[in-house]
Structures are given as structure tokens and as C-alpha cells.
């Protein structure tokens, strides 16, 4: 069992996302530690990309703020290094394929292993293309997380069978962002997944309120929240620590 899978072995998991370097590297380190303290089970750190095509406005803006502030792939690894001096919280990275491809798969995943990064989420790396990165990632013990979407249909079983770490169940059509309602048949999707694998499922896209989190956790092993946290950072900037702590605590309580 991989370390990521273990994250989901102790009750419903809360996965908290933020964009590295938004608003500063120091803040990102602090916010990660706050989120861990508030009960986050896995931290998903976004390596900002200039053109995040699967992202809604909130995370797009955060990515641009981080890049304008000078954040780089190297800078993200430094953030993880700082976190590791004070915490062993499970960490996954989220980014688009190009920054990883450009860093070099060998160098990137070697760096991940040395820093205790257990997984990577790459929205523009579907099942058919994951081979080239996964071969290298696997050698360094890093899980390339599979995503399953409302349109996946007969692809669900194909993807789920090979999934490692956990399965990112995309709750809605379109891009990331806060939604008032999630209308996809999540239960049906998870049922399909369960038919072929025990790999844990976490639901993401559109979840922002404790009520939604509670509902979604009912169907799966965890929930992933990104835009709602990033929005707090957008609103409170360098003073978002307490707000994030309170929010993550409430969300974690709602899924327990």
C-alpha cells in the first residue's frame, strides 16, 4: 500500500489545495502548516503554470499572482523543503505536464522522493498519455494520480484498474471553481470504480461548504477543496492564516 493510500485509511480524508507562492513562499509554508494543524490529511500544492486550462478563474488568478511573484518549480521544491523541516504531512503536487516535462522526469521525481512528495496530479495527462511520466515516477515511488470525470463512462473501469494512490473523482463538467450545486451522479461513478478497485476515491471540483463536503464524503473516502481555500488567500493575502485554519477545521469536522 502506498503512503497516499494510507492517508485514506483513517476515516474520511480532507485534501487541501493551495497554489505555491501565492502570495509568497513564506505564506505558503505557513498556510500548509496551519492546514495540517486544522486537520487536513493531505496537502495538494499547486506548481503555478502560465496557462492552466483546467482551472477556473480563482486558481488561474492565483497562478498568475504566484508567477508574477517569481515562483518557479525550483521555488516550489524549496517550499516543500521548508515544510519538511517542521512537518511530515503527506504532500502531493499538482501542475500541468509542461513544467514537469521541462524539469525532466528523472530530476523531477527524484526531487519528489527526496522531499517525501508522494503523488502528483496532472490534469492534462489522461490515461492514454500517462505512461511516459508514470514509468519514471514509479521508479521513485511517486504515484501519478488518475482523474475520472462525469464524461468518463466506459473509461471508468479502464482508468480505475490502473489507478495508484487515490482516484481523483471530478464532480462536475468544466473547470475548477466553487459551485452552488453538484448534479453529477457521483454515487454511480464511485460504484463503477468500486467494481474494479479498492484504491481510495476523493471527490473534487466545486466543493466549498461544509454541507457539500459532508454530502460528498458520504460517497467517497475523501474530499478535495481548492478554489475555496485559494479564495480566502486572495481575500486576506498574507493575513489568511487564521481564516484558513478556521475554514479547514470546519470542513474537516463536516466530513468526520
Amino acid at each position: 500500500m502506498s503512503r497516499l493510500q494510507e492517508v485514506f485509511g483513517k476515516g474520511k480524508a480532507f485534501v487541501a489545495f493551495l497554489t505555491a507562492g501565492d502570495p509568497t513562499a513564506e505564506c505558503t509554508v505557513n498556510y500548509i502548516l496551519k492546514m495540517e494543524k486544522a486537520g487536513a490529511d493531505l496537502i495538494e500544492i499547486g506548481i503555478p503554470f502560465s496557462d492552466p486550462t483546467a482551472e477556473g478563474a480563482v486558481i488561474q488568478e492565483a497562478s498568475l499572482r504566484a508567477l508574477r511573484g517569481g515562483m518557479t518549480t525550483e521555488g516550489v521544491f524549496h517550499i516543500v523543503e521548508e515544510v519538511r523541516k517542521r512537518s511530515g504531512v503527506p504532500i502531493a503536487l499538482m501542475t500541468y505536464l509542461n513544467p514537469v516535462f521541462h524539469y525532466g522526469y528523472e530530476a523531477f521525481f527524484a526531487r519528489c522522493r527526496s522531499l517525501g512528495v508522494d503523488g502528483i496530479i496532472v490534469p492534462d495527462l489522461p490515461f492514454e498519455e500517462k505512461g511516459e511520466a508514470e514509468e519514471v515516477a514509479g521508479r521513485f515511488g511517486v504515484d501519478v494520480i488518475s482523474l475520472i470525470a462525469p464524461t468518463s463512462m466506459e473509461r471508468i473501469r479502464l482508468i480505475a484498474k490502473e489507478a495508484k494512490g487515490f482516484i481523483y473523482v471530478v464532480s462536475s463538467m468544466g473547470v475548477t471553481g466553487v459551485r452552488s450545486q453538484i448534479t453529477t451522479d457521483i454515487a454511480g461513478m464511485v460504484e463503477e470504480i468500486r467494481a474494479v478497485t479498492d484504491t481510495p476515491c476523493a471527490i473534487g471540483f466545486g466543493i466549498s461548504t461544509p454541507k457539500q463536503a459532508g454530502e460528498m464524503a458520504h460517497y467517497a473516502d475523501g474530499v478535495i477543496v481548492g478554489s475555496a481555500i485559494v479564495r480566502l488567500i486572495e481575500q486576506y493575502g498574507e493575513a489568511a492564516g487564521e481564516e484558513i485554519y478556521r475554514y479547514v477545521s470546519d470542513m474537516k469536522a463536516a466530513i468526520a
Partner: peptide, 22 residues
């Protein structure tokens, strides 16, 4: 290697949401 290749170039690097449609 996936479909739609010209040497090493091409491929289908898109979110899963679009794969069935492609």
C-alpha cells in the same frame, strides 16, 4: 505512445473530461 503521433510529437494531452469526446 498514444494515437495521433508525428514522430514523438502530437498526442492527446487534455483533461479526462474531454477524452471521450475526442
Amino acid at each position: 505512445m498514444s494515437r495521433g503521433r508525428y514522430g514523438e510529437y502530437g498526442g492527446q494531452y487534455v483533461p479526462e473530461t474531454l477524452m471521450n469526446e475526442l
